[in-house]
Amino acid sequence: MRRVSIVQGENAIVAEPGVVVSTLLGSCVAACLYDPVAKVGGMNHFLLGEPGADQRVSAGDMQRYGVHAMELLINGLMARGAMRTRLKAHLYGGGNIVSGLGGIGTANAAFARRFMADEGIEVAHTDLGGTSARKVEFLPHEGKSRCTKVADRVPDRPPVPVNLPPAGGDLELF
C-alpha cells in the first residue's frame, strides 16, 4: 500500500487501488471526493473558504482558499474520468483548535457544506467542527475514509506559497 501525504494548499488525485492519501487538519478542511463508477478520487486541504466580499487578496493568497482548491480537485478528477454528477464527498476538519482565531474552523466547515450544496455534490460523510485536530486517511479508488482525532493540538502550518499542481506530496511506504 502506498501513502501520499498532502499539506495545506495541495491536492492528490488517485485512480489506483490501495493508495492512501492522508493529511493533518486543525481549522483547515479536507474534502475527499470520489466517483464510485470511474473509481477515481482525491483529497484537498485548504486554509480558508473564500475571500470576503470586501477583502482584497493577491493571486498568491487565493491559492489558500477553498473555492480555488475545490476547482483544482474537481477539474483534476474530471480529467481522470470522473463525472461531476456522480461525485460523493467526505468532509473533515474545520476544528476551532486555537482560541482567538475567530471561529475560522466553523467558517471553513460552513464553506465546505455550502460548496457541496451549491455544486450539487452528495455529501456521504462529514466530521467537521469541534475542537480537536484530525488525521484523515482516504482511499480514493475505494471511496473509503477514516478520521482519527488527535489528542494533542496540531496547529495548521503557516501559509506557504504552493506550486500547483502536481498532485500529491511526499511518498512514503507503510
Binding site: D54, V67, M70, R84, D118, E119
Partner: peptide, 16 residues
C-alpha cells in the same frame, strides 16, 4: 464557469 461558487466569486469581483 461550470462551478457555481466560482461564478459567484467572479460576479462579485466584477460588481466590486
Amino acid at each position: 464557469d461550470d462551478q457555481t461558487s466560482m461564478r459567484a466569486m467572479i460576479r462579485r469581483a466584477l460588481q466590486d
